[in-house]
Design a protein around this nucleic acid. Structure first.
Lengths: 212, 212
DNA sequence: TAGTGTGAATTTCTTCACAGCG
DNA sequence: CGCTGTGAAGAAATTCACACTA
C-alpha cells in the first residue's frame, strides 16, 4: 500500500486534486495545520468519503481520529501532480489573455514559471512584461529548443490558433492549453486542453434556466 | 418519448452539449447539413454511442441510415441550453481578462450579449469598450436592476473577488462565472462556476508527467 | 445499406457503513 | 472518542450489440 511509484490515477481524481490543493493552500494561510476529510469536503463541495478515497489513492498520510496534516497533503498532492519542481510555460499570443497570464504573479507559488512570451505583432515584439521580453513568433522553435517548456499556453486570435498549435507540435511540445472557441486537432500523442469561455457560459446558462 | 418538457438532463450530458454545439457550428460553416454520430464523435472525442444517447436524451431528430440534420441539432441543443434568446452578461473587473471578454465578438453568435461593464478604478470608469461605457462598481446594484443580466462574469483582482461576488448575490444575481485562484463561497441557491487557470495547468502537468 | 435508437452488459464513480487505530 | 481507511453496496455513465427504419 502507498506505493511511491505512479500507478495511473483515474482522470476524475486527477481533476479533483488541484481543487483540494487550492483549498489546502487557503487554509494553510490561516495557519491551520490539520484538516478532516469532512472539512475538506465542505470547502470543496466533494463528498467526505470521496475525499478520503482520493487521498488514499495517492498513498495518503492521514492520522486516524485526528485528520490530515495540511503541509504533508500539499506536498503529496504537489508531488503527484508533478509540481515538486516548477513547470516552465511558454505563452504564445500576448493579447489580453496572454498578458494576464504573463503578469499573473500567483503562478510561482503554484509551481509554474512563465519562461517565454511570443507574439506575431512586430509592435509587441521587444517589449518587456514582468521582466520577460516578447519575442517574435518566427523564433518559436528556437525558443522552445532554448527554454524546454513543459507546457504551452496559446492565446492568439481564433484564425491563427490551429497554425500556432501545429507549429508547437512540430517543435516537439506535447502539452498545450488553448482558449479557442472551436475544436482544434492535434496528433494523438499531444495533450491539448481547450478552455472555451462560451462553453462555460453555456453550461451556466443551462443550469440557470433549469434551477436557481 | 422525446418529451418537450424539461426533465432534468444529467450534468455529464449538459457538459458535453456545448462541445457538440461548437463542433456543429464549425461544420455548418463548411455548408455541411448532415452529420453522423460517428463523425460528431470524431470531432469531439466522445464515443459514438454516447453521442447518440446524449442526443436521444433531448428528444433528438436523427434520421436512420442518414444521420442528424445539423441545423435541427443546433436548434435543439441551443434551446436545451436556454440559448434560444440571448443571455445578458455583466462583466465586473475590466483588467486583461475582463477586456478580453468585453472585446470578444464571438459571443453574439453563441447567444450571449455583454450588456454592462463595471470596474472600481476611476481611471477606467467612463471609458468605452466595444460601444459600452465602463461604469463604477458602486453602481453595481443599479446596473443589475437596470439591465437584468442572466450571468455575471467576475474578473477582478483576487483580493476583491469575494466582496464582488457577495455584492452580486445581494443584488439578486444567481449565476456567476469567476476566474479566481481560490475557493469562493456563495449561498446554496447561487450557481458559481470558477475557472482557475492554475488548476487547468496542474491537470495538464499531471497528464504530461504521466503520459506523453 | 448505412446509421439511428435502445435494452442489456460492463465499467467506472460515489456513497454507505463500519472496523480499526491514534 | 473521533476520524481515517476500506470492503461492499449502490448509482451512474459508458460501451456493446443489434433490431429497426428511412
Amino acid at each position: 500500500m502507498g506505493n511511491v511509484v505512479t500507478e495511473a490515477i483515474p482522470a476524475t481524481i486527477v481533476a479533483r486534486l488541484p481543487i483540494y490543493l487550492r483549498a489546502l493552500l487557503d487554509v494553510a494561510m490561516a495557519d491551520v495545520t490539520l484538516v478532516s476529510s469532512e472539512r475538506l469536503a465542505g470547502l470543496t463541495g466533494v463528498g467526505a468519503a470521496t475525499v478520503r478515497k482520493d487521498l488514499a489513492s495517492l498513498g495518503s498520510t492521514g492520522i486516524r481520529g485526528v485528520g490530515y496534516d495540511v503541509r504533508a497533503l500539499v506536498d503529496q498532492i504537489g508531488r503527484t501532480l508533478g509540481l515538486h519542481r516548477p513547470s516552465s510555460i511558454v505563452v504564445v499570443g500576448i493579447g489580453n489573455i496572454g498578458r494576464a497570464l504573463a503578469q499573473y504573479t500567483g503562478f510561482a507559488e503554484r509551481g509554474f514559471r512563465v519562461v517565454a512570451l511570443l507574439d506575431a505583432d512586430p509592435e509587441k515584439v521587444g517589449t518587456t512584461i514582468n521582466g520577460l521580453v516578447v519575442r517574435g513568433i518566427v523564433e518559436l522553435s528556437a525558443v522552445v529548443a532554448d527554454t524546454h517548456p513543459a507546457i504551452a499556453v496559446v492565446a492568439v486570435p481564433p484564425d491563427d490558433a490551429q497554425e500556432v498549435v501545429d507549429a508547437l507540435v512540430a517543435s516537439g511540445l506535447t502539452s498545450i492549453l488553448t482558449f479557442h472557441p472551436a475544436p482544434l486537432s492535434v496528433p494523438d500523442h499531444v495533450l491539448l486542453r481547450n478552455l472555451d469561455l462560451a462553453v462555460e457560459l453555456e453550461i451556466l446558462a443551462y443550469m440557470c434556466s433549469h434551477a436557481g
